[in-house]
Amino acid sequence: MTAEQVEQVRRFNRTVAERVGVLHDHYLGAARPYGQARLLWQIGDGGTHDVRSVRDRLGLDSGYVSRLLRALERDGLVVVEPHPRDRRVRTVRLTSAGRTERARLDERSDALAASLLDPLDARQRDRLTAAMATVERLLTAAVVSLEVLDPDHPDAAHCLRAYATELARLFDGGFDPARSLLPDPGELRAPRGLFLVARLHGEPVGCAGLKLPAGAPAEIKRVWVRPDTRGLGLARRLLAELEERAARHGSELVRLDTNKALEAATRLYRDSGYTEVPAFNDEPYAHHWFEKRLTRHPRQDR
């Protein structure tokens, strides 16, 4: 990144903070600062929520969230209590007064959004909202984290189940994991491989595995991204991360296979520099086989 890019981001942040009123102690003219208002809105009126999931969604530390919740409790807007089946877990829900306050925040937020658009003509409004959608998408992509997990980790297992369910819907004749050349979990653990899981706001939204067999090319397996997070460039990021790790392991070649129904995946592989080659395995669900030469890096642990 360049210094000019960093400065542009900082200018953008200052402009947004000033224009939407987060610098004021009484956000949107209400009795509370922005942090409390945002937490109140996140809790929502959809029942009871795990405090940890709310905290993960907002990217806040537990101490700060606890202080915000205590302030909302004092004002009678939320109820925080232990989970009925696990008292180690705290839950939070809005009271009747909290739902009323949230509805008032929604009304005032709509009015603020309208005030941003009102001075602009129709063409400018379209440009602004389109630019906002792009910024939102890119900022969301920037907060996705990648972590190497054991294939038996609950988040990894969740991704693999979702992957198999989607293939069963897309493939002609469905998808039976028992027929596929699924890697043994041990092949996706160090030193024989690894399994990457992508998380957004604490939730697993994608995965990809890498086999690192001795004396053979590296192989990428089970690349999946949750449908509602596609368009963020996550599949490309997973692919690039596995290529980097394979190269650092000393691999000079990486391979993968895919089904004809996965047209977007096939385009991604071609666009990412993969060349179609003759079949190198007996995967019954594969119609295309690809490989890519890697730029070697000094071998090191990551």
Rank of each mutant, 00 (worst) to 15 (best):
residue 1 M to H: 10
residue 4 E to N: 10
residue 6 V to T: 13
residue 7 E to K: 03
residue 11 R to V: 06
residue 13 N to T: 10
residue 13 N to S: 08
residue 16 V to T: 12
residue 17 A to I: 01
residue 17 A to K: 12
residue 17 A to H: 08
residue 21 G to P: 07
residue 27 Y to W: 15
residue 28 L to W: 10
residue 29 G to F: 04
residue 29 G to S: 05
residue 32 R to E: 14
residue 38 R to K: 06
residue 40 L to K: 02
residue 41 W to H: 09
residue 42 Q to N: 07
residue 44 G to L: 03
residue 45 D to S: 12
residue 48 T to E: 12
residue 51 V to W: 04
residue 54 V to G: 05
residue 58 L to W: 11
residue 59 G to L: 11
residue 60 L to V: 13
residue 61 D to Q: 12
residue 64 Y to P: 06
residue 66 S to L: 14
residue 66 S to C: 09
residue 67 R to V: 14
residue 69 L to Y: 15
residue 71 A to R: 15
residue 72 L to C: 15
residue 73 E to A: 14
residue 75 D to P: 02
residue 75 D to A: 05
residue 76 G to H: 01
residue 76 G to C: 02
residue 77 L to Q: 03
residue 77 L to E: 04
residue 77 L to Y: 04
residue 87 R to T: 04
residue 88 R to P: 06
residue 92 V to A: 06
residue 95 T to F: 03
residue 95 T to L: 04
residue 95 T to I: 13
residue 98 G to M: 04
residue 100 T to G: 12
residue 103 A to L: 12
residue 110 D to K: 05
residue 110 D to S: 10
residue 111 A to H: 11
residue 111 A to L: 13
residue 111 A to P: 00
residue 112 L to W: 04
residue 124 Q to W: 00
residue 124 Q to A: 14
residue 126 D to S: 07
residue 131 A to H: 07
residue 133 A to G: 15
residue 134 T to F: 00
residue 136 E to H: 11
residue 136 E to T: 07
residue 137 R to V: 00
residue 137 R to T: 00
residue 139 L to Y: 09
residue 144 V to C: 06
residue 144 V to I: 10
residue 146 L to G: 07
residue 155 D to I: 02
residue 156 A to G: 12
residue 157 A to R: 07
residue 163 Y to H: 13
residue 163 Y to I: 01
residue 166 E to S: 12
residue 169 R to S: 14
residue 174 G to E: 02
residue 179 R to V: 10
residue 180 S to V: 06
residue 182 L to Q: 14
residue 182 L to W: 01
residue 185 P to W: 10
residue 186 G to W: 11
residue 186 G to A: 15
residue 190 A to S: 12
residue 199 R to S: 13
residue 205 V to Q: 11
residue 207 C to R: 00
residue 208 A to K: 06
residue 210 L to P: 04
residue 210 L to G: 08
residue 213 P to H: 11
residue 216 A to T: 00
residue 218 A to N: 01
residue 219 E to P: 04
residue 221 K to H: 07
residue 223 V to C: 02
residue 224 W to Y: 08
residue 229 T to F: 11
residue 233 G to H: 09
residue 244 E to S: 05
residue 247 A to M: 08
residue 250 G to W: 14
residue 254 V to S: 08
residue 255 R to W: 09
residue 256 L to D: 11
residue 256 L to R: 06
residue 257 D to K: 09
residue 257 D to S: 15
residue 259 N to K: 15
residue 260 K to P: 07
residue 261 A to W: 11
residue 263 E to T: 15
residue 269 Y to N: 03
residue 269 Y to S: 02
residue 270 R to A: 06
residue 270 R to K: 02
residue 271 D to W: 13
residue 273 G to D: 01
residue 275 T to H: 10
residue 277 V to I: 01
residue 280 F to N: 01
residue 282 D to N: 10
residue 284 P to M: 13
residue 284 P to H: 13
residue 287 H to P: 13
residue 288 H to I: 10
residue 288 H to F: 15
residue 293 R to A: 14
residue 298 P to D: 04
residue 300 Q to W: 04
